[in-house]
Amino acid sequence: MTYLAKFRVWRGDDKGGDLADYKVDVNEGEVVLDIIHRLQATQSGDLAVRWNCKAGKCGSCSAEINGRPRLLCMTRMSTFTEEETITVTPMRAFPVIRDLVTDVSFNYRKAREVPSFAPPANLKPGEYRMQQVDVERSQEFRKCIECFLCQNTCHVVRDHEENKQAFSGPRFLMRIAELDMHPLDTADRQHQAQDEHGLGMCNITKCCTEVCPEHIKITDNALIPMKERVVDRKYDPLVWLGSKIGRRS
């Protein structure tokens, strides 16, 4: 049941750091976060890691395990062999603070740049009427736990620091799609998405969808539909003409 696992954990801060080797007990049914906690309690009390719910619902314990962006609490130890060395590092798209903790303020800044829900002015609380089929698309995106793994894995910013200004990342492009598909939202999201949030930089290579622990189909259901909506408004002369003549759905 119990075995001694080999771990390599990145220790350090923004000035430098390295992978440190550990040998640590693993019991049946445990996840990587349990092992990190065991390291804290038994070998290095100051090993920094973010975590909250330990049930995959809060999105705090994002890191990279064997180079793959994952939630520490949702990665079962049974997915590794007993001989394997398991490498745990902080997310590599964001500045590191210490050990496994990164500075994710980029995401909060981007969140603030997305204009909020804009309901019709004359609608009073309690009078909102929406059909289930009309809210379901946005509801899928609202499952997002903001673990920022999609932001971390997206090569547009992961591999190009300079793009962080112009590109909001999958999470917030999905937020724009969510609002655009909200049955009662009245704002123009399409121009925003392309002109201010860098939707055009997305080359739909789907890594965001691959890492999403909530299994949200970010690319197929949010980013591509949003790109198509942008085409309607910006690049499709026929649809553009149609909207000028006055017929809108």
Partner: peptide, 20 residues
């Protein structure tokens, strides 16, 4: 009830009944 309805004005999307 007022506190829940207010959430809809902030953008919450609850599951719906047949009459919306």
């Amino acid at each position: 009830p007022d506190r829940v309805w207010e959430l809809e004005t902030y953008g919450a999307l609850f599951d719906r009944t047949a009459d919306g």
